[in-house]
Write a protein that binds this DNA or RNA. Structure first.
Lengths: 176, 176
DNA sequence: CCGCTCATGTAACTGGTTACATGATTTA
DNA sequence: TAAATCATGTAACCAGTTACATGAGCGG
């Protein structure tokens, strides 16, 4: 029933507890993937929902007159997180996510070879800079000894590299 | 302003024109990525919106008493499609999409090594079967001489292969 | 003529988004 | 003391989903 964001927020609180909603927001906002914005309108109501479900528990921070709330995952919340992580995973077609680049190439018939090359060049530049960022983040995670954050960034790196390799195939067909 | 789905629908009509809304639905529903469901509630209102914008034009099918509508892309619609395809592409962080597997591994601390292995095994099986499907579809596209559909499926294949390669890294850390 | 597919549509809902608003705390 | 950041929240909106509903056309 719960959305991926809901589970991810529970996971983030679990990793950083005790933490504020604001911290959770920042983590999503600064994430390398922009899939979730970490907007106030999503995170604050979501954390309240999680508290209603009894999977997180908030408490006012000591000596904080603005009523900052510190969230912790409850025993029940830890159980929910574990249940979500266990197989079965979402079905395979959900593992193949939508790729805006792939979608565009599907309609390449509509533009000229010259314009197709321009798309390839633009995509390559964007992917290269994002790859560099992912590498830095991966290195930082490794230094901090955070194995699973490191692995998550490795996933990003391999995924971007796959896109770049695919671009070479696209380029080869455009060249003809 | 327009969503990716809106542009993709315009592209699909352009590729298959003249075609019915029902055909468009089927194409999304049968797509290898389940990102868009092709539900009636999305496609029918969307096509009406596109017609309001003047980018597609519908006409009743000859000798069809149930009022089946055949859609075509207008000159203006072709222009919109081309403008969307041209650079600049969406920014790099949008090119790195959310991967439910990556998200789960980020929170692997919450489960035991044994359970982590179970996730890896499940993921590998699902990705392998999906890879086989993508390969079949790619082959079919190649046979039909549809270069850009073939390329789109190649993107899926490379992406799944990258995920499988990454799973080996995940497995290596779980093993310890 | 029965069931499947073709074909079109609506209503209620959901899970987010953007934009706005307020005020406390920290730092330059 | 001004500006940036921390912190919390709401309201309006939007895109897309599920579920429901109707009916025509067609193959066995």
């Amino acid at each position: 029933m719960a959305s991926e964001l809901e589970q991810a927020v529970l996971g983030v609180v679990w990793l950083h507890q005790p933490c504020t909603a604001y911290q959770v927001r920042k983590i999503f906002a600064q994430s390398i993937s922009s899939h979730w914005s970490g907007s106030a309108g999503s995170i604050y109501p979501l954390l309240r929902r999680l508290e209603d479900q009894g999977v997180v528990k908030s408490a006012a921070r000591e000596g904080d007159s603005r009523g900052t709330l510190l969230y912790k995952v409850t025993r029940r919340g830890a159980g929910k997180l574990k249940a979500w992580l266990k197989p079965p995973l979402p079905s395979a077609e959900h593992l193949l996510t939508m790729d805006p680049l792939r979608v565009r190439v599907r309609f390449f018939d509509a533009i000229s070879p010259k314009q197709r090359m321009a798309v390839v060049v633009d995509a390559r530049a964007k992917l290269a800079s994002h790859l560099a960022l992912a590498r830095e983040l991966a290195k930082a995670a490794e230094r901090q000894g955070d194995t699973h954050l490191h692995l998550a960034h490795r996933s990003g790196i391999l995924s971007i590299r796959a896109q770049i390799a695919w671009l070479r195939e696209v380029e080869a067909t455009v060249d003809q």
